[in-house]
Write a protein that binds this DNA or RNA. Structure first.
Length: 664
RNA sequence: GCCGAUGUAGCUCAGUGGUAGAGCAGCUGUUUCGUAAACAGCAGGUCACCAGUUCGAAUCUGGUCAUCGGCUCCA
């Protein structure tokens, strides 16, 4: 587990997820390491050391490539300052698959300006500027260097961000500058000095294979309250081939984007007449959902969960009591208000409903744990810039459940949930994920409940992870407002990381709702709640799996498992009969999902299209087969397997494994 | 929400001020075919929407909306 990624870097130096597509140049940028040894993400420490980059895999951080990219960021900054002398530089770190630099421009940069900057970079690279480290005696001297030598004659205001970075460096720590300087043929001097801990390559002529990729806005120090700077993303490699391979991979990744495949495979759609972020599930996508929820449902029944079903709207008072309104008011769809009557809201969470059901009767300690599960559709008014296909939709389905447990049961129940999640992920074939324990950020006031509850809940999560030998990383500030949580994180085709499964230990909602059970001592006690969702969002999970499998879902999940292809019209009836037999599970308890492609097209075309729709098995039926009782079998990955007796073919289909190789 | 980009037929995309184009998909007809695209014809667009500039706007300007890449957020 644990993905190829850095993760504990300073917030200002967060990787660009867009850049983190695995270019896989011999695993050079691959960075696996023990999560437990990683430095926890901590906003406080990020701010204390904004100019250092930690948490990257040591081999990458120490590699030539890492230095090269860092130097490429400097070269870009030099080009920018020559072209736009009033631009104010802030930070420009290397990241997993490249580098960026955050710059405050006087007038907005256009995408076409990138080419200009690239050309200038080439010019400077050709000057073969030596890059040298210049240590400063102390911060005082460093300040002088910044003001005297890095402002392009624009005055102290130009060094605004660099001075703030300098201030954040602890007194006594080494302060260094890197300087690159050369004179061109016309005798003009080009010089660039940047506050930087390095290290760098020795000469700008080493920076040859680079490309500026895109522009983005990025808040100074990652804080919305600060000014938004312009971030220029780029990448650099040691060789031209590696650069081209990376850019090629980027293009390939776009083809497995779930939005592209979702349309091609007929899984889901969006309509402007319905609304942003509100998916419409087409028959094949709905089938996929059914297969997945059916699987989880059965797994949950085995583990003592009970199903419940709750409405899509509720009286707002329910959510005032839970605290959701106070925290998320402006991230909900507009309230349904009526002057005379009560106000209702579209539900953004299922928990208060399940709590109501728990409270509907007096509970004994003998009844606990109570485990209520529901595939609950919720609606959240996500920010317009955040909606991303079905990865982040405004209407989605949680595979939600709430466990009401005694303190003694907490650990076992939590472990049971983690076990379920691992079972689910193994079945879905998802391996490349990481675990994150989101804890309370002491500096924030968005949390409810007493500290002792938070401490107990956090300890319960970490203890359970230890028992399960699950490696995790602690991430302060990533807790839910009512409690800490364990999240499983996974990347999409473009390398962006998403939260999927989640488990939360919650002492606070039981308190707010005054939940009770009668203990052995015949006195009332307060249960603890576990919120959990192994998929997280069914929509997001389907998006991630679509990308992971490039649309070629494992056999058990494929919306269409078998396509029967009659060669000519006269074979259509036999084809239908064969399909019906497969659907009726004549041969097995497993009813197969079968389609007959009886269009008047050539066999080649039928094969091509079913192949493009990633149908696992195609059964070709012609005169010879009907005569001999055989079918021509074609497997999605293995190709034409020739004619075989029907019985053999069925045996093969039913033995098809639940996993699949990735044909993309 | 913020920064940047994009919006032409169902899909992928041409079209830089003078009567809207191609391929695929679709429809109709012919073909009845053995493992990744048969042949022919037809139809399909208020060029996202609303204003403006102009004799004339897909094309220039402004606004709105949606989508895409980031930032921030994600109960």
């Amino acid at each position: 587990m644990c993905a190829r990624q850095q993760r504990t870097q300073d917030q200002e130096q967060r990787q660009n997820p867009h850049q983190s597509l695995d270019p896989a140049p011999e695993g050079k940028v691959s960075c696996r390491y023990n999560l437990r040894q990683s430095v926890p993400r901590n906003r406080g420490s990020r701010k204390a050391h904004p100019h250092c980059l930690r948490g990257l895999n040591m081999s990458y951080e120490q590699s030539y490539l890492y230095k090269l990219r860092h130097s490429a960021a400097h070269l870009m900054a030099q080009a920018v300052t020559e072209l736009y002398p009033s631009a104010k530089l802030s930070i420009g770190p290397p990241i997993e698959n490249g580098f960026y630099y955050d710059i405050d421009f006087e007038s907005p940069l256009k995408e076409e300006d990138l080419e200009k900057i690239e050309n200038k970079m080439r010019e400077l690279s050709n000057l073969k500027e030596p890059i040298v480290c210049r240590p400063a005696k102390d911060k005082e001297e460093a300040k002088k260097v910044i003001l005297d030598e890095t402002t392009n004659g624009q005055g102290p205001e130009n060094a605004l961000y660099k001075l703030q970075l300098l201030e954040a460096i602890p007194d006594g720590d080494a302060v260094t500058f890197y300087e690159q300087r050369a004179t061109d043929k016309q005798g003009k001097e080009h010089a660039f000095i940047d506050l930087c801990r390095g290290p760098h390559v020795e000469n700008t002529s080493e920076i040859k294979n680079f490309k500026l990729l895109n522009l983005a806005g990025a808040y100074w120090r990652g804080d919305v309250k600060n000014k938004q700077l312009t971030r220029i993303y780029g990448t650099a490699f040691e060789t031209k081939d590696e650069l081209e391979a990376y850019l090629h991979n980027l293009e390939e990744a776009k083809k497995r984007d779930h939005r592209v495949l979702g349309r091609e495979l007929g899984l889901f759609m969006f309509s402007p007449r319905v609304g942003t972020g509100l998916p419409l599930w087409l028959p094949k996508g709905a089938t996929l959902r059914h297969v997945m929820t059916d699987f989880l449902q059965k797994e949950q029944v085995k583990r003592g969960y009970e199903p419940v079903v709750t409405p899509h709207i509720a009286n707002i008072k329910l959510y005032e009591k839970s605290g959701h309104i106070q925290t998320y008011r402006d991230k909900m769809f507009p309230f349904m208000e009526d002057e005379e009557k009560e106000t209702y809201i579209l539900k953004p969470m299922n928990c208060p409903f399940h709590i109501e059901i728990y409270q509907s009767q007096l509970r004994s300690y003998r009844d606990l744990p109570v485990r209520y599960a529901e595939f609950g559709t919720v609606h959240r008014y996500e920010q317009s810039g955040e909606v991303t296909g079905i990865l982040r939709a405004r209407g989605f389905t949680q595979d939600d459940a709430h466990l009401f447990v005694t303190p003694e049961q907490l650990q076992d129940e939590f472990i049971g949930v983690v076990d379920l999640m691992q079972t689910v992920l193994a079945k879905l074939g998802l391996k490349d994920f990481r675990a994150r324990v989101g804890t309370k950020d002491p500096g924030s006031d968005k949390y409810v409940g007493h500290d002792e509850n938070w401490v107990a809940a956090t300890k319960a999560i970490m203890d359970a992870c230890d028992v399960m030998k699950l490696e995790y990383e602690v991430s302060p500030g990533d807790a839910a407002f009512y409690g800490p949580k364990l999240d499983l994180m996974i990347k999409d085709a473009l390398g962006r990381e998403w939260q999927m499964g989640t488990v939360q230990v919650d002492y606070n909602l039981p308190e707010r709702f005054e939940l009770e059970y009668i203990g052995e001592d015949s006195k009332p006690h307060r249960p603890i709640m576990i919120h959990r969702a192994p998929f997280g969002s069914l929509e997001r999970m389907i998006a991630l799996m679509t990308e992971q499998y490039a649309g070629a879902f494992p056999f058990w999940l494929a919306p269409v498992q078998v396509a029967v292809l009659p060669i000519a019209d006269r074979h259509n009836e036999s084809a239908q009969q064969l399909a019906d037999r497969l659907r009726d599970s004549v041969y097995d308890t497993r009813a197969l999902r079968v389609e007959v492609d009886d269009r008047r097209e050539t066999l080649g075309k039928k094969i091509r299209e079913n192949q493009r729709h990633k149908v696992p098995f195609m059964l070709v039926l012609g005169d010879r087969d009907i005569e001999a009782g055989t079918v021509g079998v074609r497997h999605r990955e293995r190709g034409d397997l020739g004619a075989m007796p029907l019985a053999d073919c069925l045996k093969m289909i039913l033995e098809e494994p639940d996993t699949t190789s990735d044909p993309a």
